[in-house]
Structures are given as C-alpha cells and as structure tokens.
Design a protein around this nucleic acid. Sequence first.
DNA 1: TTGAAAGCGCTAACAT
DNA 2: ATGTTAGCGCTTTCAA
Lengths: 355, 355
Amino acid sequence: MTPSPESPVDIREVARAAGVATSTVSRALRSKPGVSDRTRERIRRLADELGYTPTSSASGLASGRSRTIGVLVPTVDRWFFSTVMSGMDLALAEAGYDLMTFSLGGHGANRQAVFDRALRGRKIDGLVVAGFPVTAEEEERLRRAGIPVVVVGHGIAGVTSIAVDEAAVLETAVDHLAGLGHTEIGFVHGALEFEMAFEVPTMRLEGFRAAMARRGLPVREEWLPLAAFTARSTFEAVQAWLNGLERRPTAIVASSDEMGFGAAAALRACGLRVPQDVSVIGIDDHAFSEPFGLTTVRQDAAEHGRLAALHALSRIGALPAGVTPCSGGLSLAEAVADAQPHELIVRSSTAAVSA
Amino acid sequence: MTPSPESPVDIREVARAAGVATSTVSRALRSKPGVSDRTRERIRRLADELGYTPTSSASGLASGRSRTIGVLVPTVDRWFFSTVMSGMDLALAEAGYDLMTFSLGGHGANRQAVFDRALRGRKIDGLVVAGFPVTAEEEERLRRAGIPVVVVGHGIAGVTSIAVDEAAVLETAVDHLAGLGHTEIGFVHGALEFEMAFEVPTMRLEGFRAAMARRGLPVREEWLPLAAFTARSTFEAVQAWLNGLERRPTAIVASSDEMGFGAAAALRACGLRVPQDVSVIGIDDHAFSEPFGLTTVRQDAAEHGRLAALHALSRIGALPAGVTPCSGGLSLAEAVADAQPHELIVRSSTAAVSA
DNA sequence: TTGAAAGCGCTAACAT
DNA sequence: ATGTTAGCGCTTTCAA
C-alpha cells in the first residue's frame, strides 16, 4: 500500500497520458477557447481518472489569482457575522471560490496584524469587510489594496457597501410601538467594547431620535442605557439601569436582537413582565428570536453576505454563470446599490400599552 | 492588472537594495540560520521600508506550504462551530497562519464538492473537522489526505480527536438533577436534519440512559422527544411533545444549550414555569446561557478549537514558540490526548423538585 | 487547434 | 556567511 497523497499527479502526467502539451491540458480543463471538443473531452476524462487537481499555489503564481475571497470580521462568534459568512459561503461555493476568514478576535489589539495578513501577500482576490468601523488609515489601505473591497454595513466612503437603511429601520420600530399606543419609549444603545467610532450603533440611535421627533415623542436621556453588543452585557447594563430609575418607559427598542434578549431577561429578572409591563423590540431577526417570541425588524444578513460575495466576484470577473442575484428580480448592480430591505416581524414581546 | 497593488515590491528589489542575493533575503526574513545579525537587521529594515511581503503563492509553490489551516464545519452560523473557529483563529494568528473555512452550508447536498475543495489543490496545510459525522469513504479520504487532520468532536477512527467525555457529561447533568430530588427526567434528543449517523447526539442519549440506570432511575421512552439541533426546532418539537403527554417529567436534560433554550421556551409557552414546574439543564454553556439563566454542563469549545489548531500546527512543525497549550500545565500532547474538561454551571433553570 | 518556451516570485541545494 | 542555480507546477504569450 503506497500512502499516496491526494494529488501527486501533475499537469504533465495528464499531458503525457493524453499525448498533448501541458498548455492544452490547462486550456481544456479551464474551458478556455482553442481546444477541439474531442480533445477537451478526452483530457477531462483522463484528468478525472488520474485524479488530477491543479496545485493552487502554482496556478495562483502563474495567473495572479488565488480563487479565494477574504472576510474581515470583528469576531466570528456572533450572529450577524457568522450569518454574513454563511451567505458568502453560498455564493463562493457556486463560483468555486474559497473563503478565508480574518478575525479581529474580539479585541482590537492585533488589528494591524490582521489587516496585514488580509491585505498583503496576495492570498485573496477580494475582501468583504463585515460590520465594523475602520480608521481613516485603514480605509486608505483598503482603497489601495489592489483588490475589490465590499463592506457589509456602513462606514467606508468610496467603497461599495451593503446595508439596510438604518433610519428607516428605526422608523419601523418606533412606528410599531407608537401604533400600540406607546409614547414613553427607551432605547438600548449598543457599542463594541474595543472600538472607536462605530457607525451602525450611532446611526441607530440617531434614527431612533429622528423617528421619535417625527412623532412628537420626547426622548428622555435617562432612557438611553448603553451596553456592549451582547446579550450578557445588555442584561447587566439594563438591570443596573432599571434599578437606578424612578420611572421607566413602557417600551424599549434594542439596537440588536442579542441586546433585546438581554434587555428582556433583565426586565424579567427585575420582576417585570414582557410585554405586559414593558414591550421590547429588537433589530436583526436572530435565529433565536422566533422561539423566544421577540418582535423585531428583520434584516437578511445572509443575503447581505451573498450579495457582497457576488459583487466582489463580479469585480474580478468571476461571477458564476446564471446566478439570479436577487429574488426581487433586480440585477446585481441594482441590488447592491439599493438599501437592503427590512421587515417588521411582530411576535409576543410587544403589546399595546396597558391602561 | 491595475497599477500599485500593496506589494509590487518583490524579493529581488529588496536584495538589490541590500546588496545581497535573494536567498539571503529569504533566509533573513524567515529567521533561518546562516545570516549574520547585522545583515539580517539591515535586510529587515529595508524590507520594511520598501513594504515588502512575500507573495504567498510563490513561497507556497517553492516551499510546499500554504501557511493556511482549513476548518470543515456543517454550518458556520451555530454557536459550537463558530466558537471552535474563533479558538482556532487565536492559535493560528499567533503562528502567522490563516484560516480557511469550508462549510457544508447546512445541507448535505454538496458534501463531496466541499471535501474536494478542502482536500485537493494543496490550499491548506492541515484540516480541522469540527463536529459532524463523516462517511466511511470520507474517513478514508481524510486519512489519505496527506495533511494532518484533527477532529473536534467524535467519530473518526485513527484520527486525533478533541472532545469531552460525553458519558461523564451526562453523568454530571443527571447527577445534578438527581441531587435536587428529581427522579422523573426526560431527555431532548438532538439530530442534525441532513445527516446520517451523528455520533455526538447518540453518545449523549446513551450517556443519559447509562447515568439514569446507574441511579436506578427509569427512562421512559415517551420522555425522549427528538428535535433538530436548533432552538427553533426544539421549541416546536417540545411543544408538540408536551401537548401529547399525559404525564410529564419534572426535569429535562437537553442535548445542547440551544435545545435547552427551545425547550424552556416551549415549556413557558405551555404555561409551565421553569424551574418551578420543570427544571431544564443543557450542555455547552452557550453565550446566552448566562443571561438566560440556563443551568448547563459547560464545555470549552473555543479551547477545543485552539488545541486542534495547535495540534495541527505541531504536526507540520509550525508551532509558535512559547505557547503554553493548556492552562492546567499539561503539554500539548497530553491536553490533546485527554478528554477535555467539563463543568457543571448551576443557574436558575433548575431547582429542587416541588412537593 | 496545438506546441514550445518563458516566466510567475519564491525556496532550497549546493557552491564558495 | 553568502551567492548561484535549479526548480516548484502552473499559465500565457508567441509560433507553428
């Protein structure tokens, strides 16, 4: 038994077997023009029989493409980011591309190193930056990277970005609560622990203020507790906030579903009922929101990831044939240019304000 | 290609600037012996000034290593898998390795294609297979892959695996409930929708039976509802199960925390209180378990991922200097060989059986 | 339609 | 300690 590795077969063996030059094999296998159908078929069969697969570093070196797209995330273990990744994976698999993950690892310490690893060395043909803010310097690097960059979320001028209209999302959330008769509404503001300016939370807070203002509802500053973007942090923050409060709102908008879970848990821990005493609405439609009955404004993170990947692929001319980018019948360019859709999903964490 | 990518500088420019041969630059930059300290320093400085980074496909082709480790997961958007990935990322970043993600995408359809992408073409130097069962044929491919393979979870004979002792985990869970006076205990059995034989759920169910038997407690077959490994599926399954039940257990062990969440939500939806009417204990210690007060048997998935990555690195001689693999002071080999530790975390979803 | 040959940018023997 | 010289396994002109 020879413990043979998976691909000891190189292109020259295939060429020899087929009685052609290696260049012909290369063309045949990649569906390039200039090979007769009969030859191509024969080469394909032979390659298959021999178990030949091109060595990626060799074709990468010769062609300048790695057939890999990168994704840069603050951390991989939170719903939004892993969901974006799974959407990307879907699109990339179809195109025969692989996904390389670069994670900040939940702390900002080695940011520079992570950017370096992602941007230098030509390991990836395109990069999707998912949901976190970058410094001006980093922006500049991304623009000069020499590969297409797509942002999921907001925040980088001059770079294609895929995101919902945050102001409209908050309109929807406030609208729902106002329609239930709520006028005393709080907002759980989110922040990444280790970050500088984080666009999305700020946009959501501003969106909340604007939506309230439009309805003539007052925003009370003491009803804007701040927490990190996790259920746990929110649980603690909201509990502390409730204890120090003389009067509480009848409804709370959370800046994400994970925060909504934390807020609801904190309310219950303080002996309050959701939604009878306090309504809670989140943003995202996390996988847990349905079983937990959390009312939310849904955004399709997987679809954002898929579009981002497709857009990156299209910029390097690697779009798989026959993809229908968008269910709404939009072209990829249109789908990418537009704000992504959002949708109110009413469940059992919101109810009419009690008399 | 467009002008001015991040690294138009190649090794020859650095060599020219330093007045040495390219091989010297190569040695100097990779800390290989055979370069004087002064020369090495000068070359490092120059490389830095010129912004030189080796092209990965070139060094990959020449050296036969891609400086990339792959991870194969059923899906990226569930707690266990993304947590394993973040642990891997931690170890890999330290070693200067990148992480390539191969996901089955939540459905088994393109399994073969995903295995192909991972195993062929030498894109990765090692592979971590996280938490899902493989067919005999796939096992054989993994063994013959020609790169080190490490499994997180159980299931591949002859391949290093990193996992808790499932039987002991279930002992711990049942022990906790029995200690609270429970004798009528159900078990929510988990299964991946699209899979064949899934080792872990089976081991947990068997562990549950064994633990109950050891205490002389009866296992009632109608108290073993089956659900997919998600909160949502479990919510629905448990709700349906409760409705068709004439008599219910006083406590439930869930095969994972995500299932525990679903089970608890279902109980509440049926008007039952947790833990007053029914206690619930999970397995994992999901990020949400603390805010939600779910009692659980903790396993450290991030640490599993970190160890798996370190082990793969060590097998290719790429362990970063000075890693302390294990907090317990174990060597990497010991830490990998042992069953991973687990720990009971008591929170508010379990209580003494009510009179 | 096909083949020959020249790299792609590095690393690793082998010299010196 | 450093330089020279072959490749690594492909892709891509350029010729035929």
